[in-house]
């Protein structure tokens, strides 16, 4: 096994182009596990941990531009005002030790079904920069994940940046698992409301083969035009939102497990819509409020 250690994106992309079979590794929290437990033996590892600047982020007027090696701890603790939803998702990852190593780019690159950031990246409308020696392209998160699993990342491409729009309203993320600590997701749900545009985006992760937007459920809310009002959400509308969310995609498992996930998704969707709406209505709420950090038990 060979380990390549490029110091710059230029070197990294050149190496990626020459050795498309090389496995990129950033924080190692997925790749190392695969090597230890699943007997994954790549011939070449492309260690991105030395690419200068790849661990930095820049807060712009409309979005946060993250290097792919921005770790979960950084997102959770330094970007919670700008990206409250993504901060919640990043803070829910594994343990402190894993959050210190695991990166936003790594989470996207391995696209593990249990990856915690995916639904929030979808709901937040993030874009991913994919680069190769041929050049760079920006792909919206919506177009990044392939339906049956995996991503559109080309064999000669690397994820070189992630751009996440600043929150424009309440954001909710909730992940459930059997444990309270080191939670392995049974289902995760993300929702954003855009105060100015009166738009909703919702997505689910750790559910089907790929994380997906819940378009029918979003459409229900947008067509109901409740987001233009200031009253209580009708209970029937919330319930229907949950039901539509749960029918948008199919869990990977079958039997009792699948039935459970479907129900859980409906519950998470309805609950988080209600809570986001309460945040939306809250006086003086600007979408950056720390209430966005609250999690239900």
């Amino acid at each position: 096994m060979q380990v390549l250690r490029p110091q710059s994106w230029h070197e990294a992309l050149a190496a990626r182009s020459e050795l498309p079979g090389a496995t990129p590794v950033a924080g190692g929290t997925d790749v190392m596990v695969a090597m230890k437990l699943r007997h994954f033996r790549p011939e070449v590892l492309l260690d991105l941990s030395r690419v200068s600047g790849s661990e930095r982020y820049r807060i712009g007027p409309d979005s946060v531009h993250c290097g792919p090696r921005v770790c979960h701890t950084t997102v959770a603790e330094r970007l919670h005002r700008q990206l409250p939803g993504l901060a919640l998702a990043a803070g829910s990852v594994g343990s402190r030790q894993v959050r210190n190593r695991g990166t936003i780019g790594g989470n996207l690159g391995t696209a593990s079904p249990a990856g915690d950031l995916h639904p929030m990246l979808l709901a937040a409308g993030a874009d991913v920069e994919l680069s190769s020696v041929r050049g760079s392209r920006w792909v919206p998160a919506d177009g990044f994940y392939r339906d049956g699993g995996g991503t559109v990342l080309g064999a000669d491409e690397l994820i070189t940046a992630v751009r996440v729009p600043l929150a424009a309203g309440p954001q909710r993320f909730q992940k459930i698992g059997r444990r309270q600590g080191l939670v392995k997701s049974l289902c995760s749900f993300a929702l954003t409301l855009d105060r100015g545009q009166r738009r909703i985006r919702a997505a689910v992760g750790a559910y089907g083969a790929a994380p997906v937007r819940l378009l029918a459920a979003e459409q229900l809310i947008e067509e109901s035009r409740v987001l233009y009002g200031a009253g209580t959400l009708p209970a029937a509308l919330v319930a229907e939102f949950g039901r539509l969310a749960a029918t948008a995609t199919t869990p990977v498992e079958e039997g009792a497990e699948a039935g459970y996930r479907r129900r859980a998704l409906a519950v998470l969707a309805a609950r988080n819509l209600t809570q986001a709406w309460a945040m939306f209505l809250a006086e003086g709420h600007d979408g950056h409020h720390r209430d966005g950090q609250r999690q239900d038990p």
Binding site: L37, D47, Q97
Partner: peptide, 28 residues
Amino acid sequence: EQGECGSCAVWLDGVLVNSCLVLSAQAD
């Protein structure tokens, strides 16, 4: 050896990590 127990925790350049999940070359 999969970051699920914390028994191997150390600091790498001052950051708490599970040393089982750090490629040794990354510690160079």
